[in-house]
Design a protein around this nucleic acid. Structure first.
Length: 274
DNA sequence: ACCCAGCCCTGGGCGC
DNA sequence: TGCGCCCAGGGCTGGG
């Protein structure tokens, strides 16, 4: 499940693979992925002839900058891009194909069909949902303690749910939230209003550190997720609690348990996280 | 204003 | 072998 580190890894890979290449045509096999008010045909027509100029990222969104337009893509659970020769057959989970003028194809593959693509005139993307709903990333200057305190301590929500809220802090998903809360020694079901300043500082540090380390390792490869080159990240090898239920806590040796928080599988050490 | 359940999807794992 | 069921989950929508 791509979170910030996996999306950043995809961004870096795609930058090497598509920048400078031109879209000749687009095939959309699953229309619901395309979130464009004027319709899929119009989406396709606007993209034809545009060249990829650069690739950015905001939270978990990929931003493909073209000639005046920006394609904004969210991979959700299992979306992935790849670049293949047009002669290579596509599989049944390839839902959007960008035919490039050099004989290659940028393909969007998504088993669950949860991913989305928006198209904006460049400059308008940040003033329109979904990007207006993306808050600061853990290592952004805007993610100050005062900002974080304001969002957390006035809330009765559970801290895990607050951290998963992309308007509060962008980039964390289920895996890295569990890792962050473990490192910070905070129980995921703690209410925002009960959080002390020092605990919030620890969470901020743990979130930034966890995401940056994971980016360095190329992200985590859990279940089917592999990056655009088909290569796998290695951060899953150093996950401290996610998916580690039943194994000893790396800190105290007691068993990691798995509970449900807000409907999501949650991994904790009940002795280290209070 | 806030919060949560339900929904979108499919493949894998399970019990029978 | 195959069927039915449940689970995984990010973000949006609708209802309370």
């Amino acid at each position: 499940m791509p979170e910030l580190p996996e999306v950043e890894t995809a961004r870096r890979t795609l930058e090497q693979l598509v920048v400078g290449k031109t879209i000749e045509d687009v095939t959309v096999r699953w229309h619901k992925i395309i979130k464009f008010d004027e319709g899929v045909e119009s989406f396709i027509n606007r993209l034809k002839g545009q060249t990829f100029r650069s690739i950015g990222r905001k939270g978990k969104f990929l931003l493909f900058y073209l000639d005046g337009d920006v394609l904004v893509s969210h991979l959700r659970m299992e979306g992935k891009f790849s670049v293949k020769p047009e002669t290579e057959p596509s599989d049944k989970h390839t839902h959007v194909i960008f035919q490039l003028t050099n004989g290659e194809q940028l393909r969007y593959n998504d088993v669950r069909k949860f991913g989305t693509m928006h198209l904006f005139t460049e400059g308008q993307e940040n003033d329109t949902p979904p990007l207006t709903l993306v808050g600061p990333e853990p290592f952004d200057e805007a993610f100050t303690l005062d900002y974080f305190k304001d969002k957390v301590q006035r809330s009765s929500r559970m801290i895990k749910n607050i951290l998963l809220d992309q308007t509060v802090v962008a980039g964390l998903g289920n895996i890295y939230v569990d890792e962050t809360l473990f490192k910070a020694g905070v129980h995921p079901e703690r209410r925002g209003s009960s959080m002390e300043d020092m605990e919030l500082v620890r969470i901020q540090q743990a979130a930034a550190e966890t995401l940056l380390e994971a980016v360095e390792k190329g992200g985590s490869t859990i279940r089917s997720y592999v990056n655009s080159q088909g290569k796998i990240g290695t951060f899953q090898q150093q996950l401290l609690v996610y998916g580690q239920n039943g194994t000893p806590c790396p800190n105290c040796g007691r068993e990691i348990s798995k509970i449900k928080v807000g409907g999501r599988g949650t991994h904790i050490c009940t002795s280290c996280q209070k």
